[in-house]
Amino acid sequence: MKMNRKLNWMLLAAMTMAFVQCKDSGDDVEPDDENELITSVTLKFTEQGTSSVSTFSYKDADGDGGNAPTKFDTISLKPNTTYTLAIELLDESKSPVDDITKEVEEESDEHLFVYTPSPAALLTYTYGDKDKNNYPIGLTGSAKTGAAGNGTLKVQLRHQPGAKNGTPTPGSDDVNLDFQLKVK
């Protein structure tokens, strides 16, 4: 009988333990705001000697995954023309919208934009800015189109902390987009 009482006591304590252990994780859902995303890339082509601006964008407002990109423009340029090319990066998942271009500018010695047309004759890019180590950045530059034709323009932002040497090789991609390019 004494054993039974002991047994009952232990079982009771054990059952109590099973139910008083609860805490809810739903009250502590933290929104993600530590990291910036890049959700929008806009290329601004300004025809030299004029004020006519053409802008082409890629937009994926909710970042990677989730909904598909909402906008992926085809770049359309005149042949044999020189343009000033500026690039704008935004994080539109935040409110207010976060201007990543500014942050890239602040850390320009860790970033390099790379513009690669394919076929190569379609466009020639020349960097128009330099970081404190005299390496190019690519936030502004000039683009000279060749003869008419169709192809792609690969736009890359290379993140190269501590390794930037003026070539695209070190680091990894923050942006890697293949815009359709039409020169006509």
Binding site: A18, Q21, C22, G26, V29, E30, D32, E34
Partner: peptide, 25 residues
């Protein structure tokens, strides 16, 4: 035997897995 498990996960930073509560008997 009887085994119970109560578990809660708190997550912050880049979203990867959600917060959850789990009870198992």
């Amino acid at each position: 035997g009887v085994s119970t498990l109560y578990q809660y996960n708190l997550m912050s930073g880049r979203p990867l897995i959600p917060n959850f509560n789990q009870f198992n008997i």
